[in-house]
Simulated scan of single mutants.
Amino acid sequence: MSFPLSSRTSDSSLLVAHGWDEGWAAVFEPYAAQGLVPGRVVRVDRGQCDVATADGTVRADTAFVTPHDPLRVVCTGDWAAVDPEGAGDPRYVRACLPRRTAFARSTSSKRSEGQILAANVDHAVIAVSLAVELDLGRIERFLALAWESGAQPIVVLTKADLVPDPVGLSYLVEDVETVAPGVQVLPLSSATGEGVDVLSAVVAGGTTVLLGVSGAGKSTLANALVGEDVMSVQAARDVDGKGRHTTTTRNLFVLPTGGVLIDTPGLRGVGLWDAEAGVGQVFSEIEELARDCRFHDCAHEAEPGCAVAAAIENGTLPVRRLESFRKLMRENQRLVAKTDARLRNEIRKDWKRTMAAGRAAVEFKRNGRLR
């Protein structure tokens, strides 16, 4: 069954430019019946948000949709049901439509809360600066979160003009490709324009979130994609290539080639948030090898018949990849355990069994017998 782009809601080009389609129109029907109007959240700031509607961008209050769960707060990229014009001042966001995808990470707080960075995203562009040494572990973290969100990741190696040697640049691309299976890796220079048209074509027609640490060149890239200086830019420090937080909010822009772009502030920390499937996607070669291990619960350490250990031994799997895989899986398990009492209890039981086995081994070594 198909639905028109609007039924009692506007099908204006402004809504369509922001990603409105038949699916969103169908979901919005109950809110249209209440006289509310649809709009896309383009910016959120302290309980207020800017919403692009059929009649232009309006300022709206989020007091009616402020849940206790930080992963459900109004976020840039959300589609919202807003009071119609003339309903009063201020206008309010009355509801947000269910998200198709959501990019989330854990916060740095000790409460281990999640933080939603962008909603309803089709592509996650991970900006990595070639002005500094590649941090493959950080790239793997970003990729895990991107895959977990439901978006298609793309790794963009910015400032490619700083690597004039084509051979050296190709080696850097290959290094990143080894940690990004199934992901396009694109060297790009916003200064010279190299690769910008390729990226524009890839992300046209959908919603793209731009991610990376400060100094990765995100704001410069956003300006290049949008075709005008919509974001202010500051130079990165020469000593370490780090930048200052030029972008302080998440902003959504319409792209001239079609689709929209969400620019985000530089991320100091890239904490996982319930991203086991995403980690598995990033390390798909390890997941594939593990299927051939003798034991289904193989820890890939000293077990006999371990296909992963065999791959390490023959050099087909780098040790760094396995160590990174273990690190991210442990981190994700700890995070989930903090919010999942059942899993926390299972981990505690495993720890007690391990301790008991250790004590039994010591007893046997001392006395030649088990208790």
Rank of each mutant, 00 (worst) to 15 (best):
S2A: 11
P4Q: 04
P4G: 05
S7L: 09
V16L: 14
V16E: 13
H18I: 01
D21S: 07
E22L: 08
E22K: 14
W24Y: 11
Y31T: 00
L36F: 04
G39W: 03
G39K: 07
V42N: 09
V42D: 08
R46P: 07
Q48N: 03
C49A: 14
D61A: 09
A63P: 02
A63Q: 15
F64P: 11
P67I: 09
D69H: 10
D69L: 07
D83A: 12
E85K: 06
V93E: 01
A95L: 03
F103V: 12
S106R: 14
K110H: 08
R111K: 11
G114S: 06
Q115M: 03
L117A: 00
A118P: 02
I126Y: 09
I126C: 10
L130N: 08
G137N: 10
G137A: 05
G137W: 02
E140D: 12
R141L: 02
L143Y: 07
L143P: 06
L145W: 01
A146L: 05
A146Q: 04
G150D: 07
P166S: 04
L169Y: 14
V173N: 10
V176Q: 06
E177Y: 00
A180W: 09
V185C: 13
G193R: 11
S200M: 12
L211Q: 12
K218Q: 04
S219T: 12
E228N: 06
D229N: 11
M231F: 07
S232Y: 06
V233T: 14
R237H: 08
T248I: 00
N251K: 08
F253E: 00
L255R: 06
I262F: 04
D263R: 07
P265T: 03
R268V: 03
R268I: 02
G271H: 13
W273I: 13
V279F: 06
Q281H: 10
I286T: 12
C293R: 15
H296T: 14
D297N: 15
C298P: 13
H300F: 07
A302L: 11
E303F: 09
P304S: 04
G305E: 13
C306M: 03
I312E: 13
G315Y: 02
P318A: 15
R326I: 02
N332C: 11
N332F: 06
L335H: 15
T339G: 12
T339E: 12
L343T: 07
N345K: 12
R353G: 00
R353Y: 10
T354I: 10
A360M: 11
E363K: 01
R369P: 01
L370G: 08
